[in-house]
């Protein structure tokens, strides 16, 4: 069982989290022409990096999505950041 740190709730068990996707993907503007290839890339292809990765996870108990940087080999969590913009 891994432990991740939700930026809002702190250190919690892995079972409270879901993986949502690799960070950095942008949904193509579907009101414009989107090629099959572009759409397939968006839908199905990921980098699946060996080593440090940047991913989006959700803490299911507070429902907040956040960025987690972690090492996919050592399972070490390098850091977590809220996706929210600052509302100072």
């Amino acid at each position: 069982m891994q432990r991740f740190s939700c930026p809002f709730c702190g250190l919690r068990d892995e079972r409270e989290f879901h993986f949502a996707g690799e960070a950095g993907k942008t949904r193509p503007d579907t009101t414009q022409d989107v090629s099959d290839k572009e759409w397939a890339n968006y839908l199905f292809f990921c980098k699946n990096t060996k080593g440090p990765t940047r991913e989006i996870w959700v803490h299911t108990t507070c429902q907040e999505y956040f960025i987690m940087e972690r090492d996919s080999v050592t399972m070490e969590v390098l850091g977590t950041t809220a996706m929210r913009k600052d509302t100072a």
Binding site: R27, Q63, E64, Y65, M83
Partner: peptide, 15 residues
């Protein structure tokens, strides 16, 4: 609920 939350935070201003 999870599906909607995902799109809300991904593609909309959650405020």
């Amino acid at each position: 609920m999870a599906h909607l939350e995902n799109w809300r935070q991904d593609s909309f201003d959650p405020d």
